[in-house]
């Protein structure tokens, strides 16, 4: 499978609205929607962080691909929770549809449970926009 994705301006704006409402308002630092080739589709932040989103996207797509391949080797379709916890900041990954990935970077002030809930809601809403 390759990525015949094209997004209209309107679609991108709607996706940004969803990510703002569900995640930025929750207090996360930044959200990046990428495809599995490592392209950045949408990135938003709270205005107080400066991550290198293009490098992050390349690494996240590769990491996700590697983790999915591991899942397949042990007979799993995929692992549902992908999460890297740091001292002060963490990254959460969730798949959107079959070909997109949502990365959320958040600090200690945001609870993982709540974040997962919101990321799921955002996923459902974005899927409807594709």
């Amino acid at each position: 499978m390759d990525f015949p994705f094209d997004f209209s301006k309107k679609q991108l704006e709607s996706i940004e609205d969803v990510l703002n409402e569900e995640l930025i308002e929750l207090g996360v630092q930044s959200v990046v929607l990428i495809d599995l080739a490592g392209n950045v589709i949408v990135n938003l932040d709270n205005g107080r962080c400066q991550h290198d989103v293009y490098s992050l996207a390349a690494l996240a797509a590769a990491n996700f691909g590697a983790v999915s391949a591991m899942a397949n080797i042990i007979g799993e379709e995929e692992f549902s929770l992908l999460f890297h916890k740091g001292e002060s900041d963490s990254i959460h990954f969730s798949k959107v549809g079959t070909d997109l990935l949502l990365l959320t970077i958040f600090g200690k002030d945001v609870s993982l449970g709540f974040l997962r809930l919101k990321a799921n809601e955002a996923n459902d809403r974005i899927r409807d926009l594709l």
Partner: peptide
């Protein structure tokens, strides 16, 4: 496939 972002 090149990703085109018409917004940006």
């Amino acid at each position: 496939m090149a990703l085109i972002n018409p917004k940006k």
